[in-house]
Design a protein around this nucleic acid. Structure first.
Length: 592
RNA sequence: GGUCUAGUAGCUCAGCUGGAUAGAGCAACGGCCUUCUAAGCCGUAGGUCUCAGGUUCGAAUCCUGACUAGAUCACCA
């Protein structure tokens, strides 16, 4: 759209001042509120070509363009800014073209991009921090897909390690064979409870040892219960069948619980990896790296990479006993994925506490193979914290994902009952809408903030359903749908196209102008891996429509061309809201 | 101490690669339902954009340096 204006300006610069415009970037913006115009060109930079003041330059350019192009209806110059007003026909044409087949068919499966997110540990249930991770990963995947890429959503489940051994040990000690069936507890919750039990006992033992004169470090290493946990880990690694059986059983409980939470959240994956299958990967690569002298072996036979030249540190890749560390596994998995899928990017949605880890991983991968340098990308997001600080699973101080969702559903139900607009629906329909609203409120609340910023969540302050929220946007969608239904009931024949002769008001131009930027915004949001741009865009669109809705009746419009224009505009807004919210993983109702 | 990230209204956040008088929501106060869904709309009030320099026609935005907060720098993941 504003590409036209750019073209015009370049042409004018060339004709008027003989400027070679190939490398000139023309800044075209939406005209600020309160100033007459649709597009604004910043002309300060062109003074050097015209050898005139910005204001005179702007006048030259404006006159030239107004005279030559008939989609420009007028121009004015204020403070050296050149403002153009486009004709009504121009805007109506824009609206019509938004409704043509705007499928960018040539942009399909441009690149293969792998997005890894969620990646939970299996010793505890998911909490609000995981929710942020999941909806970020899910939304980014949707946005990358919408911008024309082939996306593979993947989850690497951390199903082995000391953490799950802790839960197992506590269960073996104090569980009396308790299962999700006998206790009626969700599987992940049950296993999480034993993790908390372990940590409580561990803490007690540490305190006792400190009282007996040990230092904290000593106490942490010597507590009997942690030694037992390490023993279980050793047995696990040696394939002890009894331990493996318990491990499989408890993990299966957890998976069932996770499945439920993922399904409630509307999250799914294309490919799931288990760390118990991948943790040994990477050893061979490290060996090769040793031969190629990318890595070094210390005297105690541990293997390292030295990144001090790159502003990073030395990082261990294999322990002196030859066992792998987290990094080894990540190297192996990354290389395996690259070889298997040949993705142009693997995006890791992981909290910013692991910035350093991924900086190192990226360096290592590019040292292994230069052509892989740009594959690894870390989508680092800020932690979700409570007013009193970090959430701590081991102390049970977390905002549980399932609890939060059911609280939200409860609130949504109350608000909906009060409004009474969906009373007539069948119970299951009602329930579906209530869940949609609850999830919409929760997801929007999180996704609207810039991923890299930390979120402090105060459980005492409930998540809003009014203002800049998911439900507000959903509500506007339902409102528009209601208008379109009423139009049908009134036997208004809707053409799906607007006449260029229709009347058009300022708010309509603003709406159309906003709608026109959606496609570009998806690209930008994909480039920046930032769904919050979509959220803010949608809110602005919705806000604008509600204003319009209030000031101009659609169905009472008697002039048929204007009525058609308004119906088309309303429908386009509804569609755009729906697709935008879909990119955030939020559904919108027809009625609410 | 090194590195990274953030600091905008009482609170939660927008503000794109520098552009005109810094915007929303929540909370407060005042209006608007015989009119397409009031989960809405309009208005009032609320700001030294952490501070100090610099770059330039022009800085919340870019650079440098302070200050504050968080993260990270393990033979943990």
């Amino acid at each position: 759209m504003e590409i036209n204006i750019k073209k015009y300006i370049k042409e004018a610069l060339n004709s008027l001042y003989s400027v070679d415009t190939t490398n000139i970037d023309v800044a075209v913006e939406k005209t600020k509120e309160g100033i007459n115009g649709d597009f604004t060109v910043v002309v300060f930079a062109f003074s050097k070509f015209s050898k005139k003041s910005p204001a005179d330059t702007a006048k030259d350019l404006g006159a030239f363009i107004k005279q030559k192009y008939d989609d420009v209806s007028s121009y004015n110059v204020i403070n050296g800014f050149l403002n153009f007003r486009m004709t009504n026909e121009y805007w109506i044409d824009r609206l019509n073209s938004l409704n043509l087949n705007n499928k960018k068919s040539e942009e399909f499966d441009k690149e293969t991009i792998m997005v890894e997110f969620s990646s939970p540990n299996t010793n505890k249930p998911l909490h609000l921090g995981h929710i942020r991770n999941n909806i970020l990963g899910d939304s980014v995947s949707r946005i990358l897909k919408a911008s024309g890429n082939h996306v593979i959503k993947t989850n690497l489940i951390n199903d082995r390690g000391i953490h799950i051994c802790k839960s197992m040990l506590a269960w073996m000690k104090w569980g009396n064979g308790e299962t999700p069936e006998t206790s009626g507890k969700k599987g992940d919750k049950l296993v999480g409870d034993y993790y908390v039990k372990f940590e409580a006992e561990y803490k007690k033992q540490i305190e006792e040892l400190i009282k007996a004169g040990q230092t904290e470090t000593q106490a942490k290493a010597n507590a009997e219960i942690i030694l037992e946990a390490h023993e279980i880990l050793r047995k696990w690694e040696n394939g002890d069948e009894e331990i493996r059986k318990t491990w499989r059983m408890m993990n299966s409980w957890v998976y069932k619980g996770f499945e439920q939470t993922y399904s409630d959240l509307g999250i799914s994956f294309d490919k799931v990896y288990y760390e118990s299958n991948t943790y040994l990967l990477g050893k061979d690569i490290v060996k090769q790296g040793l031969e190629n002298e990318i890595f070094v072996r210390d005297e105690d036979s541990s293997v390292w990479i030295d990144l001090t030249d790159e502003g990073l540190d030395r990082k261990i890749l294999l322990r002196s006993d030859g066992t792998t560390v987290y990094m080894t596994q990540d190297i192996g998995t990354a290389i395996k994925r690259i070889e298997e899928f040949n993705p142009s990017k693997i995006i890791y949605v992981v909290g910013n506490e692991q910035d350093y880890h991924f900086a190192v991983l990226k360096k290592i991968i590019s040292k292994i193979n230069k052509s892989y340098s740009d594959v690894i990308e870390h989508l680092s997001y800020g932690m979700v914290e409570l007013p009193e600080g970090k959430m701590k699973s081991r102390e049970g101080k977390v905002v549980d994902a399932d609890d939060l969702m059911s609280d939200m559903i409860e609130t949504a139900r109350n608000i909906s009952n009060e409004a009474g607009k969906i009373h007539d629906l069948e119970d299951d329909e009602k329930e579906k809408i209530i869940r949609m609203i609850a999830l919409g409120a929760l997801k929007y609340f999180i996704i609207k903030v810039d991923p890299k910023k930390q979120i402090i969540f105060n459980p005492k302050e409930s998540i809003d359903f009014n203002g800049n929220t998911g439900p507000f946007i959903q509500y506007t969608h339902a409102r528009i749908k209601s208008i379109l239904r009423n139009a049908e009931k009134m036997n208004i024949k809707f053409h799906g196209k607007a006449s260029e002769e229709a009347d058009i008001v300022d708010l309509e131009i603003e709406l159309i102008s906003h709608l026109c930027t959606f496609e570009k915004l998806i690209q930008e949001s994909a480039n920046r891996l930032d769904p919050s741009l979509i959220a803010n865009y949608t809110y602005a669109l919705t806000k604008l429509f509600n204003q319009y809705y209030h000031e101009h009746s659609i169905l009472k419009e008697t002039e048929s061309k204007t009525l058609q224009l308004r119906l088309l505009l309303a429908q386009t807004v509804a569609q755009t809201i729906k697709s935008a919210m879909d990119l955030l993983g939020i559904e919108v109702p027809e009625i609410m």
